[in-house]
Design a binder for these strands. Structure first.
Length: 521
RNA sequence: GGCGGCAUGGCCAAGUGGUAAGGCAGAGGAUUGCAAAUCCUUUACCCCCAGUUCGAAUCUGGGUGCCGCCUCCA
C-alpha cells in the first residue's frame, strides 16, 4: 500500500504516482499580503507542511520523494491597494511588511520555507504573455482596457467544482453588478487584466496600463516555476471555486495539458460553527494567539488532531486539550536530549530502524499506513502518543531525580523513533522561531482585531518567575525548614514555606520516604 | 435554487462490513499530613427510520440537523 490522496478533481482517494519517478512538484496557493495571517492560514500551511515533510520522509514506501515546493505571494490586489491608500503607503510597502510578518509567523510554527516563493509583481512578463496567448487562441477578449477569459469557449469548465454553467446561469444573473457587466460576454467570464482607473497604481501592458486579475497570477507563476503540468496543487477549500476552476481554465486553454494531476484542499477553521474569516471579523491572528502564551506546537497538535479535509472548530477547550497533550509529548521528546548522560544515549547508541524491536516496527508501520491513507494525522498522532507514554513516564521520574533502571536505558530506540515520527509532523520541542516572533513584534501582539482573546495559557506562566534568583543554598535551607516543620506537625508553617517557594518559581515534590526534591520553573 | 461535505462517549477526534484508536476532562487506586506533580486502572454499541447481509458505526434508500462554495477569502 502506498500513499493515497483525496483528489478534488475526482472526489476520490487516488493512489499517488508522480509524473517523474520519486519526484514531486507542488504548488500551494499562498496569501494575499494585505494583512496578517490568521488561524485559517495557519491550519492550511501546517497541513501542507506535513504533506511535504511526509513525502520527504525516508520511511515512505519506496523511499523519500524529492519535493519541489512552490508557494506564491499575491502582491498585486485591490485589497492591498485599499490598505495602502488607507495608510498613505505605497502598495510595495504594505506587501513587504506583510511578507516579512508572514515569514515570522510561519517560522514560529515550524513550517518549512518553500523552495521558491514567486510574487506577482516579479512575474508580470509571464502574466502578460500568458494573457496574450489566450487572446490569440480566442480564449480571451479585450474590452476597453480590460481583458476577460471567455468561459463558454473552454470545454470542461466546472470540472473541479462540479459546476454546470448552463445550470448556474440563472442564479448568476443579477448576482454580478457594476460596470464590468457591460463588458463581459458571459456573467462567469472573469478578468485577466483590469485597466487602471485614473490615479490608480498600474503596470504597463499591451492592453494599456492596469493590473492582472488574481487567477491569472497563479497560472503564470505555476508555469514559470514548475512548467505546464505539476503533480499536486494545494489550497483551501474556499479556493475551489472560482479561483482554482479559473486557474485550470486559463492554464489548460493555453497549454492544452492538464495543469495539476492532484488537487488537494484543506477544510476551513470555524469559530462557533462559522468559517473564520476577515469579513466576519471572527478571526484570531497567529501572532495574537502565540503572543497570548499558546505554544506553536500546541497549535500544530490542535490542527493535526483533525483530518485536514474536515472543518475544524476553533475553541478554547480544544486548544487547552492540545496544550496538555503537547506537554506530555514534548516531555517524552525531550527526554533523550535532556537526560542523555544519565541514560547513556549517545549518538553511537542510535540504532538503525532496521534493528527496531517488533513493537516499534509495528508502530512505525501503523504510522506509515495512517499517513498513507490521505494523511490521517489524527491516527498517526495516536501512534505517537502510544510511543510517548513510557518515555513521558520516564522523563517525569528522571525529573524528580530517580535513577534510571537498566530497562529504562534500553528505551533509546523508542525515543529515537518518536523523535523521527514527530518530526514528520513538524513537532519538535523548543521551536526557535517563536522567540524571534515575540521579540520582533513591537507592541506586537496587540492586534486589535482579536475577536476571541485568549487568556494567557498556563503553558508559559511559570517561565517569567522562574528566573528569580534564590540561591540553591537558600532554597535548600527553606526546604529543610519545611521538613522540620513537617516533623513537628506544624503543617501551617510547612504549607506557608511551600507557597513562598512556589511564588519564586520553585516546585516542591514530596517523594515516598519523606524526601523532598525541588525544581526550578 | 445549484454543487459539495459532515453527523461516533462530557469535549475533540480516528475507525468505511466482523464485537469501537488516541487526546482532554471525569472516576477509582498508588504516593502524601494535605496539596501539587507523577504513575496505574477505568468510562460509548456510533442522529432517526427502513433495507441488504450470517454479521453494519461502516453498504443502499428515506428523513432530520449542521457546515462550506456559488462575491474577496487558506
Amino acid at each position: 500500500m502506498t500513499l493515497r490522496l483525496t483528489n478534488t478533481l475526482s472526489r476520490a482517494k487516488e493512489a499517488f504516482t508522480p509524473l517523474v519517478d520519486r519526484q514531486v512538484s507542488i504548488y500551494c496557493c499562498g496569501v494575499t499580503v494585505y494583512d496578517l495571517c490568521h488561524l485559517g492560514h495557519a491550519r492550511s500551511y501546517i497541513v501542507w507542511d506535513v504533506l511535504r515533510r511526509y513525502l520527504s520522509w525516508p520511511g515512505q514506501v519506496g523511499g523519500a520523494y524529492t519535493v519541489t515546493f512552490v508557494q506564491n505571494f499575491t502582491d498585486i490586489d485591490d485589497k492591498i491597494l485599499h490598505r495602502a491608500a488607507q495608510e498613505g503607503l505605497a502598495m510595495e510597502e504594505v506587501s513587504a511588511r506583510n511578507i516579512s510578518a508572514y515569514f515570522q509567523d510561519m517560522d514560529a510554527l515550524n513550517i518549512l520555507r518553500a523552495d521558491a516563493m514567486p510574487r506577482a509583481t516579479a512575474c508580470l512578463d509571464g502574466i502578460c504573455s500568458l494573457i496574450g496567448e489566450l487572446e490569440s487562441k480566442g480564449a480571451a477578449y479585450s474590452a476597453d482596457g480590460d481583458v476577460y477569459f471567455a468561459v463558454m469557449k473552454q470545454a470542461g469548465y466546472g470540472k473541479l467544482s462540479g459546476r454546470d454553467l448552463s445550470e448556474q446561469q440563472e442564479g448568476a444573473s443579477g448576482r454580478t453588478t457594476g460596470e464590468e457587466d457591460g463588458r463581459k460576454r458571459h456573467p462567469f467570464d472573469f478578468a485577466l487584466w483590469k485597466g487602471a482607473k485614473p490615479g490608480e497604481p498600474s503596470f504597463p501592458s499591451p492592453w494599456g496600463p492596469g493590473r492582472p486579475g488574481w487567477h491569472i497570477e497563479c497560472s503564470a507563476m505555476v508555469r514559470q516555476e514548475l512548467g505546464d503540468t505539476i503533480d499536486i496543487h494545494l489550497g483551501g477549500a474556499d479556493l475551489i471555486f472560482p479561483h482554482h476552476e479559473n486557474e485550470i481554465a486559463q492554464s489548460e486553454a493555453a497549454s492544452g495539458k492538464p495543469l495539476a494531476r492532484y488537487w488537494l484542499h484543506n477544510g476551513m477553521v470555524n469559530v462557533g460553527g462559522e468559517k473564520m474569516s476577515k469579513s466576519l471579523g471572527n478571526f484570531t491572528t497567529i501572532r495574537a494567539l502565540l503572543g497570548s502564551g499558546v505554544s506553536p506546537m500546541t497549535l500544530r497538535l490542535f490542527v493535526l488532531q483533525a483530518h485536514y479535509r474536515k472543518p475544524l472548530d476553533f475553541t478554547l477547550e480544544g486548544l487547552e486539550a492540545a496544550a496538555t497533550g503537547w506537554k506530555g509529548l514534548s516531555g517524552a521528546l525531550a527526554v533523550g536530549s535532556t537526560y542523555a548522560d544519565v541514560l547513556g544515549w549517545s549518538d553511537s547508541q542510535v540504532g538503525s530502524s532496521a534493528a527496531l524491536p517488533e513493537e516499534l516496527k509495528a508502530i512505525r508501520e501503523r504510522f506509515r499506513e495512517a499517513m498513507d491513507d490521505d494523511l490521517n494525522t489524527a491516527a498517526a498522532l495516536g501512534e505517537l502518543f502510544e510511543l510517548a507514554r513510557p518515555l513521558r513516564a520516564l522523563a517525569n521520574r528522571l525529573r524528580i531525580g530517580d535513577i534510571p533502571s537498566e530497562a529504562d536505558r534500553l528505551q533509546g530506540p523508542r525515543w529515537q523513533l518518536l523523535v523521527e515520527l514527530a518530526a514528520v509532523l513538524g513537532l519538535e520541542p523548543d521551536p526557535s522561531g517563536l522567540k524571534e516572533l515575540l521579540a520582533s513584534s513591537p507592541g506586537g501582539c496587540g492586534e486589535p482585531a482579536t475577536a476571541a482573546p485568549m487568556p494567557a495559557a498556563a503553558e508559559q506562566a511559570g517561565a517569567a518567575a522562574a528566573s528569580s534568583g534564590l540561591s540553591e543554598a537558600a532554597i535548600e535551607a527553606l526546604v529543610d525548614q519545611r521538613k522540620a516543620a513537617k516533623a513537628a506537625r506544624d503543617f501551617a508553617s510547612a504549607d506557608r514555606l511551600r507557597a513562598e517557594l512556589k511564588a519564586q518559581g520553585i516546585e516542591l515534590v514530596d517523594k515516598p520516604g519523606g524526601v523532598t526534591v525541588w525544581l526550578r520553573g
